[in-house]
Design a protein around this nucleic acid. Structure first.
Lengths: 142, 142
DNA sequence: ATAATAAAGGATACATTTGTCCTTAATTAT
DNA sequence: ATAATTAAGGACAAATGTATCCTTTATTAT
């Protein structure tokens, strides 16, 4: 469905939401170990999310990444968007540029319902909700 | 959702199903123009499908690609499978290798329903059904 | 048989994605 | 102030996906 980069972005964000606070920031090594992702690559991804202010970071001792409470209320769609993968949720399954009610591809009638459900899912679930779903340490790791 | 290769594979197969017969085979140029795909790349893809005998081909004058009637009855999932993209339909949204009822990712409960619908869609729709859905020449082209 | 035609196959080029490393900049503890 | 720490940023490497071209092989029409 999504690229590796987006998968890592989602896992990292949920992990940070669950395990960090202003007084307990998380380093990139800790994060990448926790979500089982390549460290340097994950660092790049967090840079993207930080620049868009979806997550926060501070350098230096006791620095690291964390989430503001307001950010935790954001729908997870925001992350997907920030990673430039929103099109995955609304483009034509067959890859047509113009696929609509007016000019539908042969799968349009059926697939549009699934697209709607996908969008609804990612629009309604917040980062916090998903963080709350994390049961074990493995829930983001394997 | 799917790779370009798989999108072309699906469009090409549906187009061939609709427009060819044993006595009217379709050349690669005609096909790639009809579905608006890069000709040589599409040729490679049809080679894959031909080798798996999902579509048929003959070289030489009046040669080209066509579909046996029995192949038209195959679920479109067969094409996805042949292109090595079946995992797209059943893997974890967050990219976890092990994501199940027993050890779920934070999105599992919700996403599994969508996965089921996706699978059901691609398992139930046959190539022929989709060919019948093609209304205009643009239905596979833009 | 021969020439023409069309797919098959191999080699290669280009683009994008994924992943790593090293230096710089910012922050903090001392 | 200084040293230690941690993210940011730039450069690069590797892997994969996309696309093109050229030669070979199979088939058919003549």
């Amino acid at each position: 469905m999504f690229s590796k980069a987006t998968e890592y972005a989602l896992r990292a964000t949920i992990f940070i939401a669950k395990n960090s606070s202003l007084s307990k920031k998380l380093g990139i090594e800790e994060i990448s170990v926790a979500i089982n992702s390549p460290q340097y690559f994950t660092a790049k991804i967090l840079q993207i999310l930080t620049k868009k202010e979806l997550i926060k970071s501070t350098p230096g001792p006791n620095g690291g990444f964390f989430l503001l409470n307001e950010s935790k209320q954001l729908p997870i769609r925001t992350i997907i968007d920030a990673m430039g993968e929103s099109t995955t949720l609304d483009k034509c399954v067959l890859g047509l540029k113009e696929c609509s009610e007016k000019s539908p591809c042969p799968m349009h009638a059926q697939y549009k319902n699934i697209k709607r459900e996908l969008q609804e899912l990612f629009d309604s679930k917040t980062i916090e909700m998903l963080a709350a779903e994390v049961k074990s340490v493995k829930s983001l790791r394997y």
